[in-house]
Design a protein around this nucleic acid. Sequence first.
RNA 1: GCGCUUGUAGCUCAACGGAUAGAGCGCAGCCCUGCGAAGGCUGAGGCUUUGGGUUCGAAUCCCAACAAGCGCACCA
Length: 572
Amino acid sequence: MQAEARGCYDTRAMLIKELLAQRLTTAFTTAQAQGLLPPGDLPEGVIERPQDTKHGDFASTLPMKAAKTLRSNPMKIAQTLQQLVEKGHEIQKVDVAPPGFINITLSTAWLQQQVEAVRHEGERFGHVTSGAGHKVQVEFVSVNPTGPVHVGHARGAVLGSTLATVMQAAGYNVTREYYVNDAGNQMELFYRSLWARYQQALGKQAEIPENGYRGQYMVELGQRVVQEHGDRFLKMPEAKAIAAIGAVGLDHMITAIKADLEMIGVTFDNWFREKSLFQDSTYATAMKMLEERGYVVRRDGALWFESTKLGEDKDNVLVRSNGLPTYFASDAAYHYNKFMLRGYERVIDIWGADHAGHVSRLKAVVEALGADPSRLTVLLGQMVALKRGGEVVRASKRTGEIVTLRELAEEVGKDAVRFFFLARSPEAQIEFDLELAKQQSQENPVYYLQYAHARIAGILRHAEERHIEYRDGDVAQLKVDEELALIRKLLELPELVESIAKSLEPHRLPHYTMDLAATFHRFYDTCQVIPKEYSPEHDGALTKARLKLVDASRIGLAQCLTLMGMAAPERM
RNA sequence: GCGCUUGUAGCUCAACGGAUAGAGCGCAGCCCUGCGAAGGCUGAGGCUUUGGGUUCGAAUCCCAACAAGCGCACCA
C-alpha cells in the first residue's frame, strides 16, 4: 500500500493527509515493536492541519495524546517518531515543537508536481472517493404547497442543495428529494380558500374559511383558475368542486415553487407526494408493522405510538379519534418508504428549527420500524429573522405578509443569496436585512471570489492573445513563497470535500473559497505572470510555469464555485 | 415552568480539545509610466456574556447564572 502510494501523484488515489497519517501510524507501531516506546493504543486523530502555516503543512498531536497511556514524556515520544517517520519524496522535514507537536513540511519538488496533478484531474479535481457509492438521500425544503417559498426557506434550500452536491463530489450516490405535503387538513384549508377566491373572481359572494389562506397570491390564483377553466367548477356539487379546483391549485403551486427554487439554482431528483403513501400500501404496511411490534395502543378513541417505550417523554397520536391520520403518521410511513422500500443507507432531512421538537420522536419511530436510527440525520436550520432597514418583517403565509424567495432572488441575485446563507453554520440564528443585502451586493464577498476567477481568465486570455504556449512549462520553476502557498491552498480542497461530506458542514466551503481567492490575489500581486516586454528567451521558463499554476488555480476556484452553485464568470 | 439551539472585533460571521482566537464589511494610512485596483500591504479594534469545574492544554467538554431564538396539540 505504502509503496504504491509513494509513486503516485494522483490525489484521487490517496490524499496526502492519509498517506502521512499512515506513515505516522507505522512509525508508532515500529517504535513499540522495537521497544523504543512502551506499549499502548494509538490515539484518535493522528494528523491535522495546523492553524498557522509557519508550523508546516501538517501537524500531529499524537505524542501529547499518547503521553498519558504510554506514561511517557510527550517530547520524547515526538522525538522518537521524528526519527522513524519515513520521509519518502513527499516530506521535506519533520520537526518537533514543545510541548510535543510533530510538524511536517512537504517537499518543494512534491508540491510543484501537484500543479500537474491538479491540471491532469481537471474538472474532477476536488472529488474524492470516501463516499464509496453509498446510497444517500437528502430531503430538503419540502415547504407545504399552500403558498410561495419565502426567504426563511432559502436557507434550507441552499444548505441542502450544496450538501448534496458536495456529497456527490465525495463519491456518494445522492438523491435530492422534495416531500410534497399534499394530504392533511392544511391542504384542505388551502383548497377551500382557493374555492372562495375562485368564486369571488366570478363575482360571487364567498367567505375565506377561518384560518384560511388570505394572501394576495390566492386572489391571483383564483383569477388564474377562472381564466383557464371558466366557471365550470360552479356547476359541480361543492365537495366535488373543491376537490377538482384543489388539484388544479396544487399543480400551480408546485410549478411555482419549482420555478422559484430554480432561480437560486436549487433542483430536485424527486418530488415525493405524501398522498402516494395512502394510494399504495405503504401507509397501511408501516402502521401494521408498528402494531405488530407492539408500539401502538388505542386510547380515548385515538391510535397512539408509544414513544415512551423508547425513552420519549410522551406518546404521539398516529390516528385521531375522527379517523384521520396525523402528519406524524405520514412521516412514519414516509421514512418507512425511505429506509425499507427504497433502501437508502443514510437519510438526511433538513428542517427548520421550529420542527426541532419532532426529531427525537421521528428517530423513535424509525427505530420502532426496525431501522437503526443513526442512519437518519436531521439538520436544523435556525430561524432567519427578516429585516428591512432595521425593522423586523413578520413572515406569515396566512396574513399574506411575506417576502418571497422570488423577490429576494430578483433583488439580491442568485449568487449573493446562495453565498449569504451558505457561509453561516446552520445553528447560527441569523438576521437577514434586505436593505443591507442589496447594498452589500456592491461590496460583497461574492464579488471577491468571482473577481479572482475573472482575473485568472483574463490572464489566460492574455497568454492566448500573445500566443504563449505553456504546455512544456516546467513547474520546478515555482519556488517563491506566494507560489508555493497557492499550491498548498489548492491541495486542501479534496480534504475539505471529504471532511464536509463527513461532518455535514457545507458552510466551511465558502470560507475556504475566500481563503483560496485571497491566496491567489496575493500571488498575483507579487508574481507577475506575463511581463509587458515578454521575451520567450528571457521570461519563457518562469512565465510558462506560472501559467500552469494559474491554470490549476482556475480549476480549483471554478470547482469551489460550482460546488456552491455559483457562477464562475470569465469576465465581470 | 420544562426541553432544544445559540452568545466570539463596531456590524455579519469563522475557528477536528492544540501553538500568538481569524475573515469580510466599516474605520485610518500606503501601493497602478508592468497580466483586470471589484485587488494588495500596514494599523486601530477581543477579559471569546458571567462564575465555577474537567486536563499537559478550553471559544470548544461539564455544571450554574444571565440574555436571545425555537419548541412543549387528537396543527403542520
